[in-house]
Design a protein around this nucleic acid. Structure first.
Lengths: 369, 369
DNA sequence: CTGAAAGCGCTTACAG
DNA sequence: CTGAAAGCGCTTACAG
């Protein structure tokens, strides 16, 4: 319709003329400014309706230097966790009067660096970014001159606002849930490659492994390295393969903590394929609480990271950053509340909240010039 | 950064001055127009780099009346089929130089009507729309004055470009696959409510049921209404419940055609819960070929609708419509190729393509004034 | 190819 | 509240 109306666009001036008011007043009505008499407002609104007037967003943007759009950069929508995160982000942004552009990076370094180089800045006011391929070595690239909010655990120490969860506490609580069922040989699926981990700073994998180890230590159970099943990729198929290989190699366990739900679903496949019962033989808990886990067989216990809250906080932090008049505004890390939810795979036919890990809001080292 | 540069925006005029050329030439370089001497181009590009110039997209849009954005309106990203469709749409749009804004309707009538009322038109040049809540009664609402491409089967006969698949042929082929395995009592999960269907014109459900019935008829097998399991909602949980209820009521079948994959996954749950083996006792095939079906236990046979092709064609049709100078351009319906893919749930340990249903490109009744 | 200029449709000081 | 006007940064006829 932009095209079709090329020569016939109705402008604010037309509306003003029709309503017998100034352009300024029309603008005031459209932007919901106070101090407008109801009668005036009504006249303007009627003129708008009669003329079929529609605000030209591009003109407003040219004037205000705001686009009202934000970028959400994430690996892929076809990964359920990110699809659900995007769903929540769209809703949270809508509630804040913003529109979201989704940028898929496939977790590739080059695409992620392009995001930080501002590839979408001509189009949007700021970026919510869930990195995957970039690591602590790329920290400098995160020092950008535009509003940026980071999601997830891949990057700590960047000079940017950050929304994350308490991975250690949540993983510890998940492991404790298995311990509370009397399980003592608890395997963990998806541990980081040791060399890579040593070089790379904390990741979801290393933090969750840390929580697992804390829980075992607190229970006085020695950590058995043979129960730690390494897996770099966290897709469903990877979980299935890794678990199959471990069982093939003689793994014996009575509990399994999969570091994400996709692997937990894959592990279910591998366990069932060998006639191992869940939860009778192996009690299983995942991480992420994607929708799928409610419909697997059995339903899977998991850790809910609070994705609605993550989305809401990300939008809020980004908005504050965009609206901030000073570049000296200190950076904030927000940690969400997470929850351990028990379902069929740990013997709870009816879903039950086992524990809550409380988060909070913390300042990050103040930015230097 | 829009904010931070408020008083310091580098413009084309600055670049032109620096490069010693006219603004027109800078614009030509940026827009990749021909007939520019390499030396001139280089001077301009160097000036751009030196000044850190970035095109102001809003200004260009105000001038050209094009946003370079398109809307993708779909029910929800948290439904895997739509997440995967969105993934493909983002890629197809990127390849065409367009950016996608996703609008979630939750399949609600009011939100879907808002899409057709042009809620996103101020922001985008056109809309790709996958309706769910609207039906043939709402046909008039689809007669919009902006570029619109419809996806899916919910609306036929609308005066708009349309990308769809051959549901009847694909469903018939899926059923024939079960028949080819020697199955004779083939249940179908997700059939439409008879009264609603009578009133509402074709839907995915009615078309796929039709294909199922054709296959049975061709094989000389009488249709048994007790094998048709009605289900309006097509989520995983609905499939599980519907299947459980049917088994509870004494359903006996050796084949099952679930009209989408989510229900097939739910049915797997219900079958396993009663100790019924797949494919030994019941051979199962779904529809949509979402990524999940490759990782369920067993892997699920399904019908692939060709989502990459759907996305590519939708972007292509929309682009053609946006670029069209005449509103009298006839409407087109494009039907994609679909494929029956056999996996574990019909006895194929290794995925195998069983059949292809060819599509094509067809004119829709030419638009009237 | 160049150069000067109009105009896209807003928002917002400015003077009342 | 009103009214007239500048200016956001582009693109694109227009005259050369």
């Amino acid at each position: 319709m932009n095209l079709r109306e090329t020569s016939a666009a109705v402008t604010m001036a037309d509306v003003a003329r029709r309503a017998g008011v100034s352009v300024k007043t029309v603008s005031n009505v459209i932007n919901d400014y106070p101090h407008i008499r109801p009668a005036t407002r009504e006249r303007v609104e009627q003129a708008i309706a009669e003329l079929g007037y529609r605000l030209n967003v591009s003109a407003r943007r040219l004037r205000t230097r705001r686009t009202g759009l934000i970028t959400l950069a994430l690996p892929e929508l076809s990964i359920p966790y990110f699809a659900e995160l995007a769903d929540s982000m769209l809703r949270a942004a809508e509630a804040a009067g913003l529109t979201v552009l989704i940028e898929q990076t496939s977790g590739r370094r080059d695409k992620e660096l392009a995001v930080l180089a501002g590839s979408r800045l001509a189009l949007t006011d700021g970026v919510v970014f869930s990195p995957l391929g970039l690591g602590p070595d790329d920290l400098a690239a995160f020092d950008v001159d535009f509003p940026l909010v980071l999601l997830g655990e891949r990057i700590f120490g960047a000079r940017a606002d950050h929304v994350t969860m308490n991975n250690v506490a949540a993983a510890r609580a998940a492991t404790e849930h298995l311990l509370s069922l009397g399980r003592r040989r608890i395997a963990v699926l998806g541990t980081p490659d040791t060399r890579a981990a040593a070089a790379g700073g904390p990741t979801s994998a290393s933090l969750r492994l840390e929580g697992y180890l804390q829980a075992l230590a607190a229970a006085g159970i020695p950590a058995d390295p043979s129960l730690q099943l390494p897996q770099m990729q966290w897709h469903r198929l990877d979980g299935a393969r890794s678990m199959s290989a471990a069982l093939e190699a003689g793994l014996e366990c009575d509990g399994l903590f999969a570091l994400n739900d996709a692997m937990a679903l894959g592990a279910t496949y591998a366990l069932h394929a060998r006639g191992i019962r869940i939860p009778e033989d192996v009690a299983l808990i995942g991480f992420d609480d994607v929708e799928d886990v409610r419909f697997s067989s059995p339903t899977l216990s998991s850790v809910a990271p609070g994705r609605e809250e993550i989305a809401r906080l990300a939008v809020q932090l980004l908005t504050e950053r965009i609206d901030s008049t000073t570049a000296q505004r200190p950076f904030t890390r927000v940690i969400t509340d997470s929850r351990v939810l028990a379902r069929g795979s740990t013997g709870y036919e009816v879903e039950r909240e086992i524990s809550v890990q409380r988060g909070g809001r913390f300042p990050i080292d103040s930015p230097t010039a």
